[in-house]
Design a protein around this nucleic acid. Sequence first.
DNA 1: CTGACTGCAAACGTTTTGCACGGTA
DNA 2: TACCGTGCAAAACGTTTGCAGTCAG
Lengths: 133, 133
Amino acid sequence: MIETTELLKEYQLKATPQRIKIVSMVDEHGHISIEDLYKEMLQEFPSVSLATIYKNINQMIESGLIQEVKIPKTKSVFELIKEPHLHMVCDKCGKIEDISVGTDKVIEEAQRLSGYKIKESFITLRGTCPDCA
Amino acid sequence: MIETTELLKEYQLKATPQRIKIVSMVDEHGHISIEDLYKEMLQEFPSVSLATIYKNINQMIESGLIQEVKIPKTKSVFELIKEPHLHMVCDKCGKIEDISVGTDKVIEEAQRLSGYKIKESFITLRGTCPDCA
DNA sequence: CTGACTGCAAACGTTTTGCACGGTA
DNA sequence: TACCGTGCAAAACGTTTGCAGTCAG
């Protein structure tokens, strides 16, 4: 709770109750869609507006606190920006997990083949999770 | 240059002039957005409708002829489905290139760490292309 | 010839905007 | 207190749908 408030301040965002709730929900869920954010938010703030959610999400993206994750064939979700990681998506239950895997070899190879100077990588893997297998 | 008419028939799609144009534009551009597709299409078919483009793109996706590529911070583009490959996006000029890089090591490692049975991978790398460097 | 495709217009869902009020620093 | 953020309503988008006329097979 105090942690979330600090986090918002670090990113120069006023710590309003709505923002605190948004950030802690993104943190707790790991990945969350606008729709789910709104639904869950309504329980605590029955008159919260979707406009407020969109405005805040966009501000948080601009400040570099969160980012949008675009996943093939599904709606976008948002996550806190942290260490680089990959996304694993379960094709049965739809759950999304982060994992850390070394990708240097692939990136070096891509750099060599393409001549690009690579700065960022976005990797999503789709398959079946252990629970659904 | 591909045999667009043949390709459409292979995927059980009637070869209308509009569809032929759509497929050849996707092929020529490699990656193209709905908006660009529509703009360029208007030159040859001044009364083409956006609805026609959407309907056809969706049908082509269902038939497995093309797929949507979602790229962070930009609008989606569409491409013909072919060999697995990665996408390189230039952060200066925005151009998108395909490259083939072995990703087995990363996928194996991800599989081992997560316990997922991985079926597909989507990789986008962002950096500066040789022309813009 | 017949079902599928096109273009138009309307409907829809999602995201953004403008404004008056209310709350944070 | 001075802003900035919120909620509401309306507007702006992007995409989908229904329908009547047209065309590919």
